[in-house]
């Protein structure tokens, strides 16, 4: 079903437990650590910006990237072409197709030394990407849940007002969640709740804090969500931001580029 996450292929075919993910990566010889993943995220944001794409398209592309990296490693493919392919397919799935030549040109403008001008290379990768995902391509995102949660919290039962600034922060946290394993681990509404929680409780130090915390906890209790999952999602995001502090883009880029060039000469 494409309307409901609960009967979606995302839940039935592409959701893992943390143990499963750990095992998959051990078997694969994982080489995409969190700093690599932050770098790939920055590539998606960069190309998405150049093509002026909507956030949902980029988020879909990030999920494709996450899925692909559970089945293949960065030692096997050109990472720049990989992110380009994920975005190209994401545009189609979100019904906003971009001509293959446009995307190759923009991508080559951004990374001339790594993107060949021949569009058939991108088209070929698209084919393998779809195959690797076993043709499951419809993605459910936390954005709809985010909007709904904000609406529900506003109502008389909870009276938790969420400012537009806080909503923006929550939205950004959701965007960042794609760097982590959250899309592979939990239903999208868990990520949405975690993002709202972080945006208005963790970052809030005014005097109403206690009242909001209580109302929010009341909401969680009524909503029947899996609290352990929410806590785990919050922790995952905090770990990401902690890791981000130690992120050195230049050295990550250099090592990735060096690897691609060595593969090119192999």
């Amino acid at each position: 079903m494409s309307a409901s996450y609960w009967c979606s292929s995302q839940r039935q075919k592409w959701q893992y437990t943390r143990d499963q993910l750990t095992r998959i990566r051990a078997d694969l010889g994982d080489n995409c650590n969190v700093h690599n993943r932050i770098f790939l995220h920055s590539l998606i944001v960069k190309l998405g910006g150049k093509l002026n794409l909507r956030q949902v398209i980029l988020s879909t592309a990030e999920v494709f990237l996450n899925r692909f990296l559970t089945r293949a490693t960065l030692k096997e493919v050109n990472a720049y072409l990989l992110v380009t392919t994920c975005i190209y397919l994401g545009c189609k799935i979100e019904e906003s197709p971009v001509h293959i030549r446009n995307i190759v040109n923009e991508s080559r403008n951004a990374w001339p030394e790594f993107i060949p001008s021949d569009p058939t290379k991108l088209a070929e990768f698209e084919f393998y990407l779809i195959e690797e995902m076993d043709c499951y391509m419809v993605i459910h995102h936390p954005y709809n849940s985010l909007v709904q949660i904000v609406q529900v919290l506003k109502t008389g039962d909870f009276k938790v007002g969420i400012t537009s600034d806080e909503q923006k922060i929550a939205w950004s946290i959701v965007n960042d969640s794609y760097i982590t394993d959250l899309p592979l681990l939990f239903p999208p509404h868990i990520t949405a709740i975690a993002a709202v929680y972080m945006a208005c409780i963790l970052m809030d130090d005014n005097i109403y804090k206690n009242q909001r915390v209580n109302s929010f906890i009341k909401f969680l209790a009524v909503s029947n969500v899996d609290l352990d999952e929410v806590i785990e999602a919050v922790q995952e995001m905090l770990t990401l931001y902690e890791n981000w502090n130690g992120y050195d883009e230049i050295s990550i880029r250099n090592s990735l580029n060096f690897r691609i060039l060595s593969l090119n000469n192999a």
């Binding site: 030692k75 072409l81 080559r108 403008n109 001339p112 030394e113 060949p116 001008s117 290379k121 393998y128």
Partner: peptide, 28 residues
């Protein structure tokens, strides 16, 4: 065909990936 003709003024030349540049060979 690259956009960065400014490469002439740089100390390091602009590299351009050729059509035989590494894409997905080991994976394929």
């Amino acid at each position: 065909s690259g956009p960065q003709s400014g490469g002439f003024n740089r100390s390091q030349p602009i590299r351009m990936a050729g059509n035989d540049f590494f894409t997905i060979a080991p994976y394929r």
